[in-house]
Amino acid sequence: MLTVHHLGKSQSERIVWLCEELRIPYTLQTYTRRADNMLSPPELRALHPIGSAPVITDGEVLLAESGAIMDYVIARHGGGRLALPPDHADYPHYLYWLHFANGSLQPAMGRRMMIGRLQLPPEHPMRAMMEERLDRQLRLLDARVAAVPWLAGEDFTAADIMMGFPLTTMRYFAPLDLGPYAGILAYLQRIAARPGYQRAMAKGDPGMPLLLT
């Protein structure tokens, strides 16, 4: 049986959401962050050497990294659903945006968060550079989702599931004003309307206000 090991307020919400969209059977094992430092509790850290979520177990399989888990679950349990095949016209878009969240947007948000914690003055060149880089990425994303309903085009895919976390829950840790990006705000409302997303968040993080505006 596929088990999703989910840490509250973390990237593992993606895997819960994926399973709900695919409507596949799975067991949800939830963990609570430590009160003293907001990191993973010992029982989750003992599960996998990386010591963080997401992690899945599936029989003898133990796998971490949300992108890798996404591919695994789609291939092994989802019959290829929510991924586009290589011969699909929108396959390049699917690939690009599938990897954009963890490859570009989240690192930029993380660097901005760390610079903020260092309390660098607004005029510091490093701070200005990070702000400009993040804005470029958000403007690119904003233009994409203003032009098409979903990142790959007309079809909702795993790329949208990957993108959801940095635009929503990650903002608990890295506050970000999305007011200037009307396309992204409209995109988040499309995500919020999906029953699979609603079920996933209710199961994985019940009672947590969702940052969808």
Score class of each variant (00 low, 15 high):
171 R>S: 09
176 L>N: 08
183 G>F: 10
185 L>V: 13
166 P>G: 13
192 A>P: 00
168 T>C: 15
194 R>L: 04
172 Y>S: 09
170 M>D: 02
177 D>V: 13
168 T>D: 07
199 R>K: 12
169 T>R: 11
197 Y>R: 03
158 A>E: 08
198 Q>P: 04
197 Y>D: 00
168 T>Q: 13
174 A>I: 12
194 R>Q: 09
186 A>Y: 06
169 T>Q: 14
174 A>D: 14
197 Y>C: 04
169 T>Y: 13
197 Y>E: 00
161 I>S: 03
182 A>Y: 03
182 A>L: 11
156 F>D: 08
186 A>F: 08
179 G>E: 14
161 I>F: 06
180 P>V: 12
158 A>M: 10
195 P>W: 05
187 Y>W: 13
168 T>I: 10
191 I>G: 00
156 F>T: 08
155 D>F: 06
156 F>S: 06
199 R>A: 15
165 F>Q: 01
160 D>A: 07
182 A>E: 14
185 L>T: 10
161 I>Q: 03
197 Y>Q: 02
164 G>I: 04
169 T>N: 11
180 P>F: 12
187 Y>S: 03
178 L>I: 05
159 A>L: 08
165 F>Y: 15
189 Q>T: 01
192 A>E: 13
194 R>C: 05
176 L>M: 14
198 Q>N: 04
172 Y>A: 14
168 T>G: 11
188 L>D: 00
172 Y>N: 13
189 Q>D: 12
187 Y>I: 03
